[in-house]
Amino acid sequence: MSLYKVAKSVVSLIFYPLYRIRVIGKENVPKDGPVIICSNHISNLDPPVVGITSPRDIYFMAKGELFDKPILGKLLRGIQAFPVKRGMRDRNALRTGLKILEEGNTLGLFPEGTRSKTNELGKPLAGAGFFALRSDAVIIPCAIIGPYKPGRTLTVIYGKPMDIASYRAEKTSAKETAEAIMSEIKFLLENYNSQHASLDK
């Protein structure tokens, strides 16, 4: 069994009961072909939470300096993370991400680039739009709704695939495409808050 599978199993055993994780819309994630899962970012625990709730194995970007430490770097690569410099302007990281998608795999992105300390959505970087436009991947918006508190329900929602064809055909900018993706994430958050928040009381 791969390190990724082992880590996913261990984290699942801990996180699911600890945070009472509820997953909505998992069936929206395609079983095959390249996929980009784009989520809001409210905690440093978001990557493992998306990793264990997604039906697909996911490749994530991680801060480049973390890979400078031999043991940690080896561990991160073992769980399918790859380095990126802040700002997502790292050409090597962009090429790596595109290669992952070309091979039919799943790329996990947090369009905001950094976690929100207020739980409010921030402005997206262009990176998510770049990958959406430069690949044939299916874009799946994802919303993580906290809080990350033991015993409280943490909800992860996978939205329906976005239609990016028109953005690609019209050569929309990466920034505008990223903003469209963030709008879908915002819709998931607002729709949940208006219709399902009572379930957590």
Rank of each mutant, 00 (worst) to 15 (best):
R77L: 08
G122S: 12
G127L: 00
L75K: 02
I79C: 01
K63R: 11
M1V: 14
T155G: 12
I21E: 01
E65F: 13
L188M: 00
L45P: 04
E102M: 13
D68S: 14
Y192A: 05
F82H: 11
E184A: 12
G146K: 00
E103D: 15
A197V: 06
G33C: 03
A62T: 13
N119S: 14
P30S: 06
M1W: 12
I71T: 03
P30F: 06
I181Y: 10
R56D: 10
T153M: 08
R22A: 05
I42T: 12
L98R: 15
K26A: 06
I24S: 01
D136S: 11
A62C: 13
G25E: 06
R115D: 06
K186D: 09
G51D: 11
F131N: 02
P47T: 09
H196E: 09
T177A: 00
L125F: 13
L76W: 03
D57I: 14
L13Q: 14
G151I: 14
L125Q: 11
P111K: 11
Q80L: 14
R168M: 12
F130N: 02
H196M: 14
K26F: 04
D200K: 15
A7E: 04
P47W: 09
A81H: 14
L189Y: 07
M182T: 00
F67K: 12
V23S: 06
I21P: 00
Y4I: 14
E102D: 15
S54Y: 10
L3N: 08
R89Y: 00
L76R: 00
S2Y: 01
S198K: 07
A81C: 15
S54H: 03
I42D: 07
R152D: 13
F130Y: 11
E184V: 07
A178E: 10
N105C: 07
R168L: 11
C38H: 08
V6P: 06
Q195M: 00
I144D: 07
T172F: 02
R134G: 04
E120V: 08
F67S: 08
N44K: 13
T118D: 15
I185E: 04
G87K: 10
K201P: 10
V49Q: 05
K123L: 08
G159N: 02
A178P: 07
A81T: 12
G159P: 03
F67W: 12
G87L: 02
L125R: 08
K85T: 01
F60P: 12
D46S: 02
V10M: 13
V11C: 11
C38N: 12
T118R: 13
F131M: 08
Q80K: 15
V50G: 09
D163E: 15
D68V: 05
I37M: 10
P70A: 01
N28I: 04
F187E: 11
P48L: 05
